[in-house]
Amino acid sequence: GAPPLPPYSAGGREVTMKKGDILTLLNSTNKDWWKVEVNDRQGFVPAAYVKKLDSGTGKELVLALYDYQEK
């Protein structure tokens, strides 16, 4: 199953993602919540729920390892 959710501390809205989604990583300075862009929406997802990909394009991409439903 998915890892436990860290307390929400990102101070911005969250976004929903599905397992297998490829998201653009915008900011990973917060260790628990990373800012991503998905379907032209920006928001935060739990860092433990995604994995960085080596895209080779200069853009940082992450793979959704679990479904996440915004609150």
Results as ranks from 00 to 15, higher is better:
G1A: 13
G1I: 06
A2T: 11
A2F: 09
A2N: 09
A2H: 10
A2D: 07
P3G: 05
P4T: 09
L5C: 06
L5S: 07
P6W: 03
P6Q: 02
P7D: 11
P7Y: 04
P7I: 08
Y8C: 12
Y8F: 12
S9W: 10
S9R: 14
A10K: 06
A10F: 10
A10Y: 06
A10I: 12
A10P: 15
G11V: 11
G11Y: 03
G12H: 09
G12R: 07
G12T: 06
R13V: 13
R13M: 13
V15P: 02
V15L: 15
T16N: 11
T16C: 09
M17G: 00
M17Y: 02
K19G: 04
G20W: 04
G20T: 01
I22L: 08
I22Q: 04
I22P: 01
I22R: 04
I22A: 03
I22K: 04
T24H: 08
T24D: 05
T24C: 07
L25K: 01
L25V: 06
L26A: 03
S28P: 05
S28K: 07
T29S: 14
T29R: 11
N30I: 04
N30C: 08
N30F: 05
K31Q: 13
K31N: 11
W33H: 01
W33G: 01
W33L: 01
W34I: 04
W34S: 01
K35H: 13
K35V: 13
K35S: 07
K35P: 01
V36T: 01
E37L: 08
V38L: 15
N39M: 13
N39P: 05
D40N: 15
D40R: 10
D40Y: 10
R41T: 13
Q42I: 15
F44G: 01
F44W: 14
V45Q: 00
V45F: 00
P46K: 02
A47R: 08
A47W: 02
A47N: 02
Y49I: 03
Y49V: 03
Y49K: 02
Y49D: 01
V50T: 04
K51E: 08
K51N: 05
K52D: 04
L53D: 02
L53V: 10
L53M: 09
S55F: 11
S55K: 09
G56E: 14
G56M: 14
T57H: 14
G58Q: 08
L61V: 09
V62C: 09
V62M: 04
V62P: 00
L63E: 11
L65E: 04
L65T: 03
L65M: 09
L65V: 06
Y66M: 05
Y66A: 04
Y66C: 04
Y66N: 04
D67G: 07
D67C: 04
D67W: 03
Y68K: 02
Y68A: 01
Q69F: 14
Q69M: 09
Q69L: 12
E70D: 11
K71H: 14
K71D: 14
K71V: 13
K71F: 14
K71W: 12
K71L: 12
